[in-house]
């Protein structure tokens, strides 16, 4: 196996910062899709690389090679993957799988619990109101057989005027309609497979909020009103916190809310310089090229490593005289690579 197998594991180191940089230069919708797609693709590639390292490493053990009916010595000769690396890759893969299942379970529990809460409270249309004096609002994604709902506390509704409430509802409906939770879940699961991708999660959340903000601004037809509604809602929420959040949630250093409000207000002003667009295009193109190169080379390397591993395994299988011919049904081998099956031999 070639050294190409390491590329997918190293790619996130360069791809994550460039994806974040590029997302900041793109409109919210494109940015969110880019971040989620980058996370998903790189996670699949790096999990694939780990699986290949595991396979190559474990097949150096005579016992396991014997089970696969191939020559461990041959594997050792032809791959640079040493056993400890294979074992480490196997361990990493195992830990990632456990993290993946746990995260999926946490999402499930949160969704079911929120759905349960919403179900026990009154509502109309797609709105559920929680009789809580604290200010909070969120989009509860639909589950099979249950449409999505906008959940808002009484405290939040009381903190906003009629038009601002319209913004709030439009914002949450945008989350539901565009199924933003799928992008969140995909990115979360991706960062379980490869923790280096964790850096994409926060920017994704931010760009999803911006996406919903822009969608709400379009629905109500007023950017300044939208900015005001978000700002007032945030101030209401911080004056009357709905629930004690865990300390970790408080630690966000640069708050996303002022940035969202500023983005809505900034775009409201007429574009003063046409050249501002040009000035962002060139860096965007450069970062996009870097990111594309990163992901592409990661993919090509993974493919190369897979082909190579496959060939190595076939060669090692060929090195042993097979006792049973039908053991290789899943490894179609080119003609002449190993002796023909000896059906009658004992």
């Amino acid at each position: 196996m070639t050294w190409a197998v390491w590329a997918p594991l190293l790619a996130p180191l360069l791809a994550v910062p460039s994806a974040r940089r590029l997302a900041d230069l793109l409109p919210p919708r494109a940015a969110a899709l880019l971040l989620a797609a980058t996370a998903t693709l790189l996670a699949v590639l790096s999990a694939g690389a780990l699986a290949m390292l595991t396979t190559a490493g474990l097949l150096r053990l005579p016992l396991i090679a014997g089970l696969a009916r191939m020559s461990a010595t041959d594997m050792r000769r032809s791959t640079p993957v040493i056993l400890p690396i294979g074992a480490l890759a196997a361990l990493t893969l195992g830990v990632a799988a456990v993290a993946l299942l746990r995260t999926a379970q946490r999402h499930r529990v949160d969704l079911l619990r929120a759905a349960d809460t919403a179900e026990r409270h009154g509502g109309a249309g797609d709105l559920t109101v929680l009789p809580d004096p604290g200010a909070d609002a969120y989009a509860l994604p639909g589950l099979p057989g249950r449409p999505g709902r906008v959940v808002v506390t009484a405290g939040m509704l009381r903190g906003l005027n009629a038009r601002e409430r319209e913004v709030l509802l439009a914002h949450e409906r945008a989350h539901l309609k565009c199924r933003h939770h799928i992008l969140i879940i995909l990115t979360d699961l991706a960062s379980c497979l490869d923790p280096a991708l964790r850096g994409l999660r926060k920017p994704l959340a931010f760009h999803l909020e911006r996406w919903a903000d822009e969608s709400a601004a379009q629905t109500v037809g007023d950017r300044r009103l939208t900015a005001q509604a978000i700002g007032r809602a945030a101030l209401a929420a911080s004056a009357a916190p709905a629930l004690p959040r865990p300390a970790m949630a408080l630690a966000a250093s640069t708050g996303p809310v002022p940035r969202r409000v500023a983005a809505l207000l900034a775009a409201e002003q007429p574009r003063t310089q046409r050249s501002s667009r040009l000035r962002t295009t060139r860096p965007a193109a450069a970062v996009a090229a870097l990111l594309t190169g990163c992901v592409l080379s990661s993919g090509v390397c993974a493919l190369d490593a897979a082909t190579d591993l496959h060939a190595t395994i076939e060669a090692a299988q060929g090195a042993l005289p097979t006792r049973e011919g039908h053991g290789h049904a899943h490894h179609p081998v080119p003609h002449g690579m190993y002796p023909p099956p000896q059906r009658g031999a004992t």
């Binding site: 929680l130 949450e172 939770h181 909020e209």
Partner: peptide, 23 residues
Amino acid sequence: MHTELEKGDDRSGVLARFVSRLT
């Protein structure tokens, strides 16, 4: 009421909240 709302809390962040906390 408080516990009602807490039941809707999500530690995984899968529920997109309208506004996050302000520093």
